[in-house]
Nucleic acid binder design. Structure first.
Lengths: 128, 128
DNA sequence: CACTCATATCGAACTAATACAATATGAAGC
DNA sequence: GCTTCATATTGTATTAGTTCGATATGAGTG
């Protein structure tokens, strides 16, 4: 429960770097300085995990033109109700959609313009 | 092998729409008109699938400052060589990174500025 | 208040993704 | 041509994600 707890590095392959750099000490220091920022990764990960599913991409694409209730999305996906509800929950928990309850209906909409931007960028990315 | 082959819709839940719309015929037509565009989804999906992994996000984050060879990334991730190589392959196949071989080393870099834009947008998206 | 309807949640079977040891490949140097 | 070294691939055990029937919830209605 003290510092014995802090992740002990495998450290395999560090000798490789000793050979790679002219000045290993400096090279390794510079490398470790460019290590990924953990809070950033932990913010991005849930977003991309939610986007990594064809049906959920179809849902978001369908919601570009405005809000839709669950029963509409069910017809659009041509999937069972429980499946659609589960996907919508995943999207909501990732902050990609918001919902508005009206009577027995639950209307979903894209949470933010940035969501559409991400979707568009993914397309642009493969257009080159 | 004729039109019997074309995906037969489940069609469950369409009566729900008959109740939902004032003018069912028109409402359903409008709904189906907003069905997701399949080529778009098939373009987006491989990108987000490749991004939906913490180690791969760490790799991309590390490559923001310029190219790195496999052995450097192995140290950065503190993961076995085969694991890192597999992730790099996934990123390359999704078109997110490019590589340049020099002697026994293989240097990886981010394929396009749009990749960084996607990563940044995912962060911005959760910042509100 | 019993019934219907839209949606949510649960549970269990199924499928896809990941980790990583073992092994293969291919470039450099001797 | 043998050896070393960086990287790639493969095989398999494990883990994570998905699907969807069954069931629960909760709003509206007669």
């Amino acid at each position: 429960m003290s510092e014995a707890d802090t992740e002990v590095p495998v450290n395999e392959g560090r000798e490789t770097l000793e050979r790679l750099y002219d000045d290993p000490e400096e090279g390794i220091a510079a490398l470790l300085d460019h290590r990924a920022d953990e809070p950033t990764v932990e913010t991005q990960y849930p977003v991309f995990r939610a986007l990594a599913n064809e049906d959920r991409l179809r849902l978001l694409d369908a919601l570009r033109n405005g809000e839709r209730c669950g029963c509409e999305l069910m017809v659009l996906l041509d999937a069972p109700q429980s499946t659609v509800a589960t996907h919508l929950r995943t999207l909501r928990e990732a902050g990609l959609v918001k919902n508005r309850k009206k009577g027995k209906w639950n209307y979903y909409r894209i949470a933010d313009g940035a969501v559409m931007d991400v979707l568009d960028l993914a397309v642009a990315l493969r257009g080159d």
